[in-house]
């Protein structure tokens, strides 16, 4: 598990006068949870991209534990993300033509040889996320099942952090609730720091700490005391 520290972070896009994201200071304890809400355009996705190293910060620093990822070059940022950050996205981003199991191990396989222990873990993760047939082609799964496979994929490398971007937004209420439950439960079980962007009040409540973004700034930070 890794703690998040943000200091003096600013994201600007060319042609825009005001920064799309501006966070003076944010600390999230290792193993803690954080829900991020805000209207669309409030900077949520940009925040996710910066903390996962998908996008380079214009200014300021973002650190996970001892690693200041804003200082890493692209290749090492990618490597850090692959090793320490499990991503779950609204649109799943699974690869058709491959089975559920192959999707879970794909990122590792593209980087290096899969270890036998990872193979075991992938099958185990599919089992606990409720995918009965790991060999089933991904495109034949239901949407809820697809997101479960995505959760299993996020957890394969035992990441210290799980970042979920609207993980339930494209699922119906009941299924979304189940997936939200799965993410929160597994993050705790694995001892991973959890960062979730969501509109789902039930999910926000389960996580505890909650920040609200507006115009790229944190306008509300609730439940900090309990979470810390």
């Amino acid at each position: 598990m890794l703690a998040l520290d943000i200091a003096g972070l600013e994201m600007r896009f060319p042609g825009l006068d005001t920064p799309v994201l501006s966070i003076d200071k944010l600390h999230l304890a290792a193993g803690g949870g954080l829900a991020i809400t805000g209207a669309s355009g409030s900077g949520k996705s940009t925040l996710v991209n910066v903390v996962t190293g998908l996008e380079r910060a214009t200014q300021g620093s973002v650190s996970w534990g001892e690693t200041e990822i804003t200082r890493l070059p692209t290749g090492r940022r990618d490597a850090f993300r692959a090793a320490h950050i499990g991503l779950v996205m609204q649109d799943f981003h699974l690869f058709p033509g491959l089975s559920a199991y192959e999707n879970v191990v794909l990122p590792v396989r593209l980087a290096r040889r899969l270890k036998p222990a990872e193979r075991e873990r992938a099958l185990h993760l599919l089992e606990i996320t409720g995918i009965a047939r790991p060999g089933q082609p991904i495109e034949t799964l239901s949407r809820g099942e697809m997101q479960r496979v995505a959760v299993a994929r996020a957890l394969l490398s035992k990441p210290g952090v799980i970042v979920a971007d609207e993980p339930t937004a494209s699922l119906d209420r009941r299924i979304g609730g189940e997936v939200a439950d799965l993410i929160v439960r597994l993050a705790r079980a694995e001892g991973a720091t959890l960062l979730v962007v969501t509109h789902d009040p039930a999910l926000v409540e389960r996580i505890g700490r909650h920040i609200v973004l507006d115009g790229g700034r944190i306008v509300e930070d609730a439940g900090k005391a309990e979470a810390a």
Binding site: T52, L54, T74, G75, D78, A79, R81, A82, A83, L87, M89, H93, F95, L106, P107, V108, L110, A111, R153, S157
Partner: peptide, 10 residues
């Protein structure tokens, strides 16, 4: 983009 995001090296 997804391949990169999920950790596939460049």
């Amino acid at each position: 983009g997804a391949l990169r995001a999920f950790g596939a090296p460049r």
